[in-house]
Computed example of a mutant assay.
Amino acid sequence: MDLNETSKKAATSTPVFCTIIPPHILDTLAQSDDPARHEPARRTLEHDHLRRTRRRELAARGLTPGEPGEAADKPHRTVYDAEHREDLPGTKVHAESDGPSQDASVNRAHAGLGATFDLYLKIYGRKSIDGAGLPLDATVHYGEKYNNAFWDGERMVFGDGDNDLFVDFTIPVDVIGHELTHGVTQYTANLDYQGQSGALNESVSDVFGALIKQYALGQAADQADWLIGADLLGPGVDKGTALRSMKAPGTAYDDDVLGKDPQPATMDGYVRTTDDNGGVHINSGIPNHAFYLVATALGGNAWERAGQIWYDVLTGGELARDAEFADFARLTVAAARARFGEGKELKAVQEAWNKVGVPTA
């Protein structure tokens, strides 16, 4: 399928509301005896539920995200300030041509949008998240102690966190890359946000969020921490390093307040649940770990070979919206063979999926 046709098709499909903090963490915090902790979590959960409902209602009425923009080799970024309200997009405070702002959140959002744009353009030849130069919009200072960041089908939105468990959500560049990659998925494979396809949706965002951080830092696979949101946890978290670990799913945190990281690394630990659209933030640990295994087996810059294979699958037109892990795995094998032949790339992909218990044949 032609890339422009793929973009047009996805742009008219149902956009999803995707957050970086999974509901199971917020559910745990909402049960805390400490009002300073359970109130922000409760408000964040209520807000996220309302936003998801609104996205579904807009889709049912036939209202879709913004149209693809003109093809461009440079980003067109605009940052808005919600001024701690929940009205979007907020007040425009920074345009592409503006110099640095006095607001660090604005500057970090602007830079994170740019880092994401750079990876997709310079490595994969993709012009913005839709492949056709879509302007990148972001809103900072959203809500009061809002403990999340989200992609709503149109823009990136950042809360300031409560400065206890979570700090400003503009700080980790991989969080920005993660959320914007939900937009890339929306305009390409448009994976259903449910069950294994939803976990793949989340995993693809983790994969490219990690690659965006590594690319920005100039890190090879063996230098990277393979953590998602490593700079997001606040001083109130005693035992935690990040939201998720691609290297060792299930080990990102084990904290009295946040609870225990529930992600499995292999299909032996696959979690069957009706929560969080069938555990999309939990079971994503399995394809996450597969990508980590491929990238580290190949070495060098993960975006060059492992990332290219994953990108080829996401944008190749053969990945079904309701794809399961085995479907994705088979397509990565085919993509590795098509791009690199019968060499070590193919072997690394096959071995990685075998180690996490997902069949490729």
Rank of each mutant, 00 (worst) to 15 (best):
Y311G: 10
Q223R: 14
D254N: 13
W151A: 00
D164E: 05
E342T: 11
I228Y: 03
V184H: 01
A82C: 10
D225H: 10
L293T: 00
K8Q: 07
Q194E: 12
G218W: 08
G99I: 06
P249K: 05
R108G: 06
K127A: 04
L331M: 15
A326I: 03
Q263E: 12
E342I: 01
Q219G: 05
P262H: 02
P65Q: 02
A36D: 15
A265K: 12
D322I: 01
E318R: 10
T274P: 11
W310N: 13
A320F: 02
P40Y: 07
G209P: 03
Q194F: 11
V271T: 08
F17P: 04
P89C: 09
D118M: 04
E324H: 12
I20F: 13
T296I: 01
I25S: 08
Q196I: 02
S32A: 05
P23K: 03
S203D: 00
A72V: 03
D261N: 05
V358T: 09
E57K: 14
A265I: 01
Q223Y: 11
T28V: 05
V140K: 10
A199G: 03
N190H: 12
A59E: 06
Y193N: 11
G278Q: 09
N148A: 11
H76Q: 15
R108F: 04
L180M: 14
Q102H: 09
V173G: 13
Y142S: 05
Y193C: 09
N163R: 06
G218P: 07
E67I: 00
W151K: 00
G209R: 03
